[in-house]
Design a protein around this nucleic acid. Structure first.
Lengths: 217, 217
DNA sequence: CCGAAACTTGACCAGTCGGTCAGCTAATTT
DNA sequence: AAATTAGCTGACCGACTGGTCAAGTTTCGG
């Protein structure tokens, strides 16, 4: 059987040539996705570059050609997840309505657990094991961002829109309660008897938090 | 330097002999604790029996003598954690006051995160990776226990002591929000700038949940 | 006090892992 | 179309892992 490069195969199937840049992006995406799946299932140490390569349907040497080391690949996976993660927090602005902001945050955060459970678990695994690669980020960027949000909640409280709350611990609660549907899916699905995250999850959490924080509608 | 058995050393230090049974219990406890620490830091795959042995200050062969395989040792660590975990849920009884039960549950659960962070992380790690060894337990015992609690909340709601709530998702929220201080300690301590779990954590969570669920005092 | 059973441990092994590399093909540039 | 660059991959390697074992030592029932 004739050997053909992935680019050649792809070009033949789609009947148009692929540029080197396209092939590289395609391969990198394929490997990154396979890596996320394997890392989420086995953790950093348990994951093998061979199984990542298998899932991506590539020779192992190819994975190393694109990303060098397993550690570098892991870091790339993590940083892609981080981007998803931080951008969610933008709803907490003084000019926004606290009820709407909280409801929106909970809704999108649980939606993220629904859409990217694999990525969420890689992140959770990293943090559980002491965040060796994310410690710096957590102590600088994340901490700053949370302190800004603390200011937003203080302003809302001053305006009488919401009770005085400890914003840091509120964020911890929100992160935990929303991500549990992705990170601890084995637990929630075992209890619920279903893999699906029902809408009541977000609805009830929103209600509890809004009433619990005395948010004025 | 003269070589002496652990039992002999211990007996010499405490100036009284140790029976075989005592030595065995002592060794098993030492290995189990070391294993919990190593498993929590590296996960099942990342943990090595050699590093467990090092932490327990024993030769590696000794670890295998007492527990056979790494998997058997892991299962023992898990089952010890489970015992801690389930017993907490006994506060949810119809005859108890919902406000007191919830406050007590949150308080003891966060206390557990403070006292046994290592064990909590081993459990979290297991669940994140799909609970290969706990799946059966989650689907039978835990699910049953949660369904009983569901009945308790229904009874409380009928008696007008609390709003109608989805008990399953409330439990998910409570588990997540309390364990986050142990499991994601790298995150919470990075944001708080301290390893300690402040009392406001339990206090605020209790307040939010009580008000959020419309618990009548 | 003696023989059996339990405990201890250094040395060892087969298997697996991350990573390398030579030698090849395909795409791009000149 | 030749030369150069990028992409591809089977075969290989040193390091490490879980687990074994033989040869000892210690404990303890009888």
């Amino acid at each position: 059987m004739e050997r053909r490069s992935p680019a050649a195969v792809k070009a033949a199937v789609e009947e148009r040539p692929m540029s080197r840049r396209d092939v590289r992006r395609l391969m990198e995406q394929r490997i990154l996705h396979a890596a996320a799946v394997v890392f989420s299932e086995a953790g950093f140490d348990g994951a093998t570059t061979a199984s990542i390569a298998d899932l991506a349907e590539l020779p192992k040497a190819n994975v190393h050609y694109y990303f060098g080391t397993k550690e570098a690949l892991y870091k790339r996976v993590l940083s892609e997840i981080l981007d998803l993660w931080i951008s969610q927090m933008d709803v907490f602005q003084v000019e926004n309505d606290p009820a709407e902001a909280l409801a929106e945050y909970i809704r999108t955060k649980i939606e993220l657990s629904r859409t990217y459970p694999v990525e969420s678990r890689v992140f959770a695994n990293e943090v559980i094991h002491g965040a060796p690669y994310l410690k710096r980020f957590l102590r600088t960027k994340l901490r700053q961002r949370v302190e800004e949000i603390e200011g937003v909640f203080a302003a809302w409280a001053d305006a009488g829109q919401v009770d005085k709350v400890d914003a840091k611990h509120l964020m911890f609660t929100l992160w935990a309660a929303t991500q549990t549907y992705a990170d601890f899916a084995a637990q929630t699905s075992a209890v619920l008897g279903s893999q699906q995250i029902p809408d009541v999850a977000a609805d009830q959490l929103t209600q509890i938090v809004l009433r619990g924080c005395g948010v004025r509608a």
